[in-house]
């Protein structure tokens, strides 16, 4: 089991953060375009996950419209709690509580990036299977 990548969007659909861990296939477009394209994946309340034959996308949206999207492989069970934790213990702590971070712009806090990276790497399903 593994985590592929993670997107954070704000309520206007701009991409605040993009993190990548085990991504084997790059879309045939630049990351900026991926961000723009990924903005199409904005559905209504109540949407939780979708899965294809190869990966599973987990979606979490707060009442303020922050959207956290994580792609993992199929073996990962419901990751709603994890996405909520990313929001409450990382985004709120290191972005919202940091007066130098302008809300609604791409996140530039190194502290946030390193903490997020550590958090994702510590997840029980992070390490890819020996294939």
């Amino acid at each position: 089991m593994t985590v592929h990548n993670l997107y954070i969007f704000d309520r206007n659909g701009s991409c605040l953060h993009y993190g990548e861990w085990n991504r084997k296939k790059q879309a045939g477009i630049s990351k900026e375009e991926v961000r723009q394209e990924a903005q199409l994946i904005q559905l209504k309340d109540g949407f939780l996950t979708f899965q294809t034959s190869k990966y599973k996308l987990h979606y979490y949206e707060t009442a303020t419209g922050i959207k956290i999207i994580m792609n993992t492989d199929l073996g990962v069970p419901n990751a709603k709690d994890i996405l909520h934790q990313i929001y409450s213990t990382l985004y709120v702590e290191y972005i919202v509580k940091n007066p130098l971070c302008v809300l609604g712009e791409q996140l530039s806090s190194d502290l946030f990036s390193t903490r997020l990276d550590l958090y994702i790497r510590a997840l029980p399903f992070f390490s890819p299977r020996a294939a």
């Binding site: 084997k24 296939k25 199409l40 899965q51 294809t52 034959s53 190869k54 792609n71």
Partner: peptide, 18 residues
């Protein structure tokens, strides 16, 4: 889009949406 944005090679589109 689901298959294009796939992080893995050779993915189908959305098979299940919950």
């Amino acid at each position: 889009i689901g298959s294009q944005l796939s992080p893995e090679v050779g993915s189908t589109g959305i098979e299940m949406l919950e």
